[in-house]
Amino acid sequence: MTDLSQERELVINAQKNPAAFNKLYQLYFDKIYHFILARAGQVELAEDITSQTFVNALENMAKFRWRNVSFGAWLYRIAINNLNSYYRKHNRLVVTEEETLISLADQQLPPLEPYADFDEQIRITELKKAVDQLPDFEKNLVALRYFQEKSYEEIAEILNLSVNAVGVKLHRALKKVRKIINL
């Protein structure tokens, strides 16, 4: 993990010279793309939203200030806004059968570790479906905590919550998942 002073320097450089944004992109691409992919569930959609997120960040670099949030948290916030905006626009649209099939094909999980047995594959696939049933806000929490391995403090910063609230809301989300999978 890059320390904040190094990240701050990268941000200052990118604010002076937009071409230097590339360093921040390299630092954050994987994290942001994986977060969006976990939330979107489709590669093509994840690519569109990731692209939009970094374009928004590049365009708004001059406005970014360290006052309230770190650069990383700011990027996640842009990603979440773009995801929310996409789902607001598309929730009411009827998904065609073809799109459903594409979506299902995209959601097939790649093989887990070589030692993972078939039962485990089934369990994890069911778990994915259960997480997908959570409200968007709880999906963000689960993705940040367990897919991205963020600390409670980092999640609190990204989602603009208190650390306590992160713990409480995460506990509720896990309880819901357990109920869905009958654990």
């Binding site: 992919l37 976990a38 999980l109 369990r123 994890i124």
Partner: peptide, 11 residues
């Protein structure tokens, strides 16, 4: 299991 799912999703 959630962590395993996360690793599987991180393509």
């Amino acid at each position: 299991d959630l962590r395993k799912l996360g690793r599987a999703l991180n393509r």
